[in-house]
């Protein structure tokens, strides 16, 4: 049990950190948002936030292992990641409606965020398989 817990946490954390760096690279390539912070401060922030997001996706996969619809870990991790992003984005849309001066919506950044949520799912699913943790699939538990 503890081994399983450690495996999914390590997979999620590692994948999330990699994804955070990927997100920086993707944004640098697309130019959707001109970075305002320094490279070092952004590297630290994206590493921390990426690790957090990776942990959430892996943790949700582990806890929802019996309820996820797909057989493979990759498809399930993409589903969880995109689902989580959509929930956060819906909350953001609500905040934007309440406080439009504070919360601006930028379509290009939203599309980039959706793409990155898919990328997070792929990264977590791939690392999960690489570490060799038992793939969460329907009826596994």
């Amino acid at each position: 049990m503890k081994e399983s817990f450690t495996n999914f946490a390590a997979a999620g954390l590692f994948a999330g950190i990699l994804w955070g760096w990927l997100a920086m690279a993707v944004n640098a390539a697309t130019g959707a948002f001109p970075f305002e912070g320094t490279l070092v401060s952004n590297w630290a922030a994206f590493t921390a936030a990426g690790g957090l997001f990776g942990l959430i996706v892996a943790g949700a996969m582990r806890l929802l292992s019996g309820a996820l619809p797909f057989k493979g870990a990759l498809a399930n991790s993409v589903l969880v990641s995109v689902g989580f992003w959509l929930v956060l984005r819906a909350g953001g849309a609500l905040l934007s409606a309440v406080e439009p001066e504070r919360f601006h919506v930028v379509t290009l950044q939203t599309l980039q965020g959706l793409f990155l949520s898919v990328a997070l799912g792929v990264t977590v699913g791939f690392i999960w398989g690489l570490i060799g943790s038992r793939s969460p699939r329907r009826g596994a538990d």
Binding site: A23, E36, R89, L95, S96, F103, Q109, Q112, G113, L114
Partner: peptide
């Protein structure tokens, strides 16, 4: 301030 750029990059509304 710390996560300002991250929020924009992942497509969340922000000022």
């Amino acid at each position: 301030d710390v996560f300002h750029d991250f929020r924009h990059v992942v497509g969340m509304p922000c000022h």
